[in-house]
Amino acid sequence: MKGFFKHISILILMLSIGVVILNNLYDNVFLNTSPRGKLQLAIKQEQEHIDYLFLGNSRVENYIDCSIIEAASGKICKNYAMSGSSYQDAYVLLKLLKRSGLTYDNLFIQLDPSLKNEAMTESFRASLVPFVNSYEIQIDHVALNLSPAEDHLPFYKYAKYDYLYGVRACFAQLYKNTSEYVELGYVPQYHTGNSNFGMLEDFALKNRFTELIKEEAVNDKAKIHFFTSPYCPDMDNTVVFNKLTSFYPGYINYSSFYKESHYFANCTHMNDKGAQVFTKQIIKDFNL
């Protein structure tokens, strides 16, 4: 039994040393290198004044090409939308940007059926995990506490979210964090397709976090604009968006604006060609 426990003890010791060393190594890489991705940019980089700030999910990230807006208006435009994110994620991102010194004049929020989701997405929460304690991030109305295991067990947070912080991400953070590799704004879709998505169902018209974003914009003396990005021509029941007009002043519904399916990568996302046309429409309608 003695030899067996000695064997087990050495294994546990090796494992313990391994997790402590790797935890420190990964902390160093993820916390102290230049930002990779929009969330890290919001946390790590000092922010400046932005004239037009776009927040939302892939239906903004794939739709708004800020370079066109900047060329047309001569003002600064940033697309901070993140694919798959919720309105709570957008709210947290806005708070993080402000925490890093951001000021803005116009905030654009895209509304779609994800209004029904008030939770933070798992991937967004996971992306925040290494930074919450080290950067002392606290945000009103949002619970960002780490689980005891994430907080106290060395390396647990990196193993748990290995799809975001595995060895591959570690190397990418070190060697692929230049603008050449990092998608920091508009992310175009290049293919064309038009899979029928079916029919839009009724959804919640209000979301706790769109309300908080509204309050935030009012406090920051910025204008807030609401719109819905286009769906493919096959999408049924886009009239459900008309109900949003009464809750979101100045709201523009573009959901069935385009009849040409070649503008779409799929039914819920425009491709690059569509995004170019749509961005110009936004410039025109919002007088940017």
């Binding site: 294994l11 390396f155 290995d162 799809y163 595995g166 060895v167």
Partner: peptide, 20 residues
């Protein structure tokens, strides 16, 4: 033996798939 065990533990930690 112990070098091989250590290398496998290291690979388990760094290359192991735990999230999915």
């Amino acid at each position: 033996k112990w070098i091989k065990i250590a290398s496998v533990i290291l690979m388990l930690l760094t290359l192991g798939v735990y999230s999915n």
